[in-house]
Structure formats: structure tokens, C-alpha cells
Simulated assay, not measured.
Amino acid sequence: MDRDATDILISGGGVAGLATAIAFGAAGFDVIVVDPAAPVTDATQDGADLRTTAFLQPAQAFLARAGLWDALSPDDTPLAVMRIVDAARDPAVTRDFVASDISDAPFGWNLPNWLLRRVMVDRIADMANVTLRTGTGFAGMVARLDCALVRLTDGGQIAAKLVIGADGRNSAVRQANGIEVTVKRYGQKAITFAVTHPAPHDGISTEVHRAGGPFTLVPLPDHEGLPCSSVVWMDTGPHIATLAALSDADFAAAANARSAGVNGQLTLVGKRSVWPIVSQIADRITAPRTALVAEAAHVVPPIGAQGLNMSLADMACLLDLAVASPQTLGEPAMLSAYAKARHGDMRLRVTGIDVLNRTSMAASPLVHDLRALGVRALHDAAPVRQRLMKLGLGAS
């Protein structure tokens, strides 16, 4: 049987897999990406990912290194302030975490996920050493001393020095290597949508907390001349199902009641999408000739813009190790260094976000009081506030 050969085989053609392919390709490695489905690159297509991603400073630097940022930056929205509103109390407790306290740059930049896919697919089309194969996926692998032999679902085979699993929370690569995961379920879902509003967002991303989960507004570019934001509304699964079934008019009324008046009257724009909320961490992030990144390794609730930014930190670490010693690509020493550098940080952040989410879900007035006191304490002591913001950006 004919067999293709490459430096790196990536399973998964989502944002994480495409970004990984481009970064390694820009560094001079030969890369093949496989995914059973073609990326959806138009917001109006069925299956379009209508969520947005806030790229924090280290993630933006990674995308710039990969040669992607110039194409993305015309559509980004800077995030200058992270605002926390605890609306479970009367009066509400509001605190602003301002990027200028610790940096000359914004905390990050917000971009639609469907647009990320479009820019990344276009970039791959211009790269001679990166190939995107859709319509086929990872079926299995055998790791040898010098390479991994990967079987594809269309019957093809690829020999790769390194296999990267970027194929999501149900990763086929992870399962093929017998790696278990620890999953925490919250009985939560998130509904995502976009809104326009009369008040400018001024680059402020706002998390409004009551019970059930946060209601988060993230700045977007203007829509038809009006200020616009992306919203992630987390709550119990049954409540989100009820919301998803409402008419646009009734849903808009419910969103305005939940928003605590942030940015004024909210007007629904476009479609709504529903996503399950879980927390998940892989027991290991490496196997022979294999590394896991992104949601194949860790899944967190959408709080604090940590999810994809953690994923890009995985990729940056793996890329640095590969560039420093390309002759050891996929070998045990490289994979051990990756696991040592990333797995502890993954566990720490997954645990921290789990605590934040459980606190946000709580209906107890006592928990609300403690949460409000915590927000005040973390914000009002300047050294603590600045350290917290640096940790949120990924600083150690």
C-alpha cells in the first residue's frame, strides 16, 4: 500500500488544529491536517461556529509568529477592560480590571470563530508544506521508534514523526492511545448569540453574575452602524433549553432581564447556538510519538477567556521544543519536556475555573455575599489585582 510521509500529522481541522498546522508550517515543518468535515468559513452556512474567541496577549503573539495576525487584525475588537458585575446583590457590586494597569496593550482582541477558520484555510492554501485533507480522519496508529504509522478513515496511511491530537473533547487520537480523562459535569449549557445596543461597549468585556452561571458580553465591531457584542449566557441545561425554544422577541426580553442593563437595551442579531458545559482534563498529554493539545487535553467552561488561550499555550510550547531540536521531533525527550511544561499548568487552570464556575452557579445568598466580598478583595488591593491579571494572561 502506498504511504505518505510527513513531519507532523494533525488530527482535527478546527481552530486549534488549523492554527497548529500553520505555526509548524511557518517554522519549516511538513504538516498534514486531517478532518472528516471541511471547516465552515461563512457565518451564514449551516454548522457555522457563531461563537467568538478573545485572544489574550500571548495568544496574539503566537498568531503573529504564525503569520496570521495581519489578516485577522482588521476585524478584531480590542478588550481594554474586564468588568465583573455581581448582580445578585442590591446594589450590584461592579469592579473593573483595566489592562493599562499592567500593559500598554489591551488584554486581548475578540474575533468570530467562523472568520478565524476562513483566514486559516486561506493561509494554508498558500503554504506549500502544509496540506489540509477533509473528508477523512484519524482511524488508528502504531508508534514505532522512528515514526508513527497512522491509518485514516478512507483507508490511507501516513508515516509521521509526530502525531498531534487537536481533535476535540472526544479525541480519537487520545482514545487510540488509551488515555483516560477526568470529566466534571455541571448540568449546564451555554447559549451564544450577538446583540446590538445603544451604549458603546468602549472595549469593555462584562461578566454579569447571578445564579446559574455568568452572562458575558464581549465587544465586537459595529453592526449596521450600532455597537455590537457577542454574548455567552450560561445556566442550567433545562433553563437554556427553554430559552432556546423562545421566539426572538421573548428571548430578547429574557436577555435584557438577565443583563442587568449592561450597555442598554439589547437587540438580538442573527442566530442562537447552544453548547454543553463540562470541565475535562486528560490523565496524560503524551504517548509514544503523540502529543495532545487543546480540547483533546483540557476543556474548561467559557470563563475568563481561558479555553483557546490555554490551547495556544500548548501549541507554543510544543513548537518551541520542536524548533529548538528538530532532529528529536516526536521523540521521548521532547514529549517528556512538553508534558512537564504544560500538564501542571493545565491542571491548575482547569481546577481554578471549575471553582469559579461552581461559585457563579450557586443560588445561596451566603455564596453571593462571599463572591461579592471576593471580587472586592481581589480588585481593591492593587498588587493582588495586578498579579491576578497577569496570571489571567498566562504569566507564571
Rank of each mutant, 00 (worst) to 15 (best):
R3V: 15
D7T: 08
G12W: 03
G12S: 09
G17H: 11
A21C: 10
A26Q: 15
V31Y: 02
V33Q: 08
P36T: 03
P39K: 04
D42F: 10
G47F: 09
G47C: 11
F62D: 02
A64M: 03
A66V: 03
W69I: 04
T94D: 00
D101K: 12
A105H: 13
L111N: 00
R133G: 08
T136N: 11
G140P: 06
T153G: 12
G155P: 11
K161Q: 13
K161R: 14
G165W: 01
A176H: 02
K184Y: 13
T196Y: 06
P200V: 13
D202G: 09
G203T: 08
I204F: 01
S205I: 09
R210H: 04
A211H: 10
G213Y: 02
F215T: 02
L217E: 10
E224T: 12
A241G: 08
S247R: 05
S247P: 09
A254L: 05
A257L: 14
S259M: 04
V262L: 01
T267M: 13
V269F: 12
K271Y: 03
R272H: 11
Q280P: 09
I285A: 01
R289C: 05
A297S: 07
L319F: 07
D320E: 12
S325T: 13
P326S: 10
A339F: 07
A339I: 03
A341C: 00
R342F: 07
R342T: 01
H343D: 02
V350R: 00
V355M: 14
S364V: 01
H368P: 03
A372Q: 07
V384L: 15
